[in-house]
Amino acid sequence: MLVVDLDGEPLAPLRALEEILLCLGTWEDDDRRDPGTDTEPLRLPAPLADRVALGAVQRLLTALAPTQSRGPGCGRLLAPDGRYEHAPMTALTLTAADTDLLAATAAALGHPGLDPDIGELVDAYAEQLAGGYRRADRTELVSLLARLAGLLDLSPTDDTHLITARLRATPPGTDCVLNYAEEAAHARTADRMNHMWAHGSGIDRYLY
């Protein structure tokens, strides 16, 4: 699959999710070690239970981190004749199971019947994610995670195959100069990514 460098934007919700899932794993462990006699044991819905979602999120973070905020020595993605620079893209191999788990995790956290304590935990990390500049809640974090899952599961097309082949044929750390057909494929793919991640707006500066 193709991953575009969005200057680290996709990593923030993933890291917030990792912290949430680490907390839930600790709650599970504490409840198993010392079950309360007057309280119901914690029952996390799939895939939150037993650190299943946590493992997938950590694998995705490990794979995605090197593709974001890439330095100048990583090679540029250039228009034909080097006329201007596009946002870098990386051809990456991810397991379908992990992207499916990310989507299922977003759905579980956004479920209206989610345990109120878990909901408060998610709200707290969503507020931190906003950075104090705007209000954020569970709905916004869940939306970001669901959109990221869609971005990572973008259906392959002739365009993505063409770009992927070009990127894989370019030695690491060197500039990749697209030809006109490849640049057209890049533009169409960027449109799809833009629609998925930002509903058609907000990241044009990264993709064009």
Rank of each mutant, 00 (worst) to 15 (best):
L14E: 06
D30L: 07
L114W: 12
T99P: 09
I118A: 03
L61Q: 04
A184V: 13
L109N: 03
D30G: 00
R33K: 04
L102N: 14
L141E: 10
I203W: 00
Q128N: 07
T170L: 05
A91H: 14
V52N: 08
A103G: 07
R166P: 13
V52C: 03
T99A: 04
A190C: 07
G25Y: 02
D191T: 04
P156I: 11
A91C: 09
E127Y: 08
D158F: 00
C23N: 04
Y125R: 05
A149P: 07
G73E: 06
G200R: 11
D50W: 10
D158C: 06
M89A: 15
R188I: 01
A185W: 11
A190F: 02
P112E: 09
P80M: 15
D115H: 04
Y208E: 09
L21R: 05
L154G: 04
D29T: 10
I118H: 12
T37P: 00
L22A: 13
L207R: 01
Y180V: 15
G150W: 05
T157C: 12
G119E: 11
A126F: 01
D38A: 04
P171E: 09
L109F: 09
P116I: 03
Y208I: 09
A187P: 01
L94V: 11
H186T: 14
L145P: 15
